[in-house]
Computed example of a mutant assay.
Amino acid sequence: MGFADHRYTVNLSILFTELPLLDRPAAAAAAGFGAVELWWPWVDSPVPQWPELDALRRAVEDAGVRLTGLNLYAGQLPGPDRGALSVPGEESERFRANVEVAADFAGSLGCRALNALYGNRVAGADPAEQDALALTNLALAARAAHRIGAVLLIEALNRPESPRYPLVSARSAVEVADRVNEVTGLGNARFLMDLYHLAMNGADLPSVIDRYAARTGHVQIADVPGRGAPGTGALPLADLLARLCKAGYDGRIGLEYKPGDGPSAEAFGWLPAAARGAVG
């Protein structure tokens, strides 16, 4: 099994960023892809005006691509923030204001996955209180996701790049998802398995795959080190993706890597053009 045996979605918040946001869906389509995903693109506005939302919706529709994943409001990303939902005060309020807006937008495009980044630990705040706040807000998000037939994704990040982010292992992220499911009874909170972040933490990736593939709602990849395209680093990504399939994961693979020095359209030479466009 090789790279061509999987379905992919392109993250437009890290690839094609040399282009304006509204031009990126068409650029992904021109590169041969049928699906895209996004971080919340309005970092200063959890509740943007409808014309902005509608313009992005039309850009996705006009490009003929499918939106397969959307991050909920996460603060300044890229930037110093790693989510807002566990951050006391204004940031968690901004997250709550965003939840229904983001769910409505995602639902209007048939998107069935919302990613909720947990947020950094805050100096002077009680971690237990942050976790309680996070559970309340994640339950709110899970209910909104359920309303549009979506899963809610919980992601582990890597400690070197996100030293104040508390979820740095597959186990910690899955445990949070379990708590959300216990509170809501919906069962739609799932693990986002980002192989780049886990590898940066030194995780045994084959063991993570074998243990948590059944709990996984989405997978993202980048090579290590450097967060570049497959083949630019040392991760045996083709083998790891084959192992995921063998373990039962049949979802898309999110391409969340840096394109390098050239245009993003030149960053996909590792993947045959015929393998890029599956829209199912």
Rank of each mutant, 00 (worst) to 15 (best):
24 R>A: 08
35 A>E: 10
87 V>A: 10
213 A>C: 08
11 N>S: 11
134 A>T: 03
110 G>H: 11
242 A>S: 13
198 L>M: 15
78 P>F: 00
133 L>Q: 04
231 G>I: 03
191 F>L: 14
63 A>H: 06
76 Q>A: 15
159 R>Q: 12
13 S>L: 08
237 L>A: 09
54 D>Q: 15
121 R>H: 13
139 A>I: 01
240 L>N: 10
100 E>Q: 14
164 R>T: 13
126 D>R: 10
37 E>K: 08
206 P>T: 09
75 G>V: 11
266 E>S: 13
142 A>F: 10
119 G>F: 12
149 G>K: 02
39 W>N: 11
5 D>L: 05
169 S>P: 08
148 I>D: 06
260 G>N: 12
115 N>E: 07
241 L>R: 01
176 V>D: 01
224 V>W: 03
50 W>P: 14
157 L>T: 01
128 A>L: 11
263 P>N: 11
159 R>A: 14
84 A>P: 05
38 L>R: 00
71 N>F: 04
224 V>N: 14
127 P>L: 07
16 F>G: 00
59 A>H: 10
118 Y>N: 00
72 L>I: 06
210 D>M: 06
248 G>C: 09
249 Y>S: 10
40 W>P: 02
234 A>L: 12
230 P>R: 04
243 R>H: 13
140 L>F: 03
192 L>N: 04
275 A>S: 12
56 L>R: 02
240 L>W: 15
51 P>M: 12
176 V>N: 02
25 P>T: 12
224 V>Q: 06
122 V>K: 01
204 D>R: 12
27 A>I: 03
175 E>Y: 04
142 A>R: 03
264 S>T: 10
6 H>W: 06
38 L>I: 03
207 S>R: 15
222 A>F: 00
188 N>M: 02
11 N>F: 01
42 W>Y: 15
24 R>Y: 09
176 V>F: 04
47 V>H: 01
92 S>G: 06
161 E>W: 00
278 A>S: 12
21 L>A: 03
133 L>N: 06
229 A>D: 05
117 L>I: 02
216 T>I: 09
200 M>E: 15
258 K>S: 05
140 L>C: 11
267 A>K: 03
21 L>K: 02
271 L>Q: 04
24 R>K: 10
73 Y>D: 10
200 M>L: 13
98 N>W: 00
168 V>Y: 08
215 R>S: 11
53 L>H: 05
22 L>R: 09
9 T>Q: 13
2 G>D: 13
129 E>D: 15
81 D>Y: 00
228 G>L: 07
180 V>I: 15
209 I>H: 08
5 D>R: 11
189 A>N: 09
263 P>H: 09
186 L>V: 07
233 G>W: 06
247 A>W: 03
207 S>L: 13
20 P>V: 14
46 P>H: 08
38 L>S: 00
17 T>K: 11
72 L>K: 02
164 R>N: 14
182 E>R: 15
42 W>V: 10
142 A>H: 03
213 A>G: 09
157 L>Q: 01
250 D>E: 13
106 A>M: 06
8 Y>C: 12
206 P>I: 11
61 E>Q: 14
226 G>M: 08
113 A>Y: 03
51 P>I: 06
156 A>R: 01
57 R>I: 00
55 A>T: 05
66 R>W: 01
14 I>C: 05
76 Q>E: 11
135 L>G: 06
80 P>I: 07
150 A>F: 03
46 P>Q: 09
219 V>Y: 08
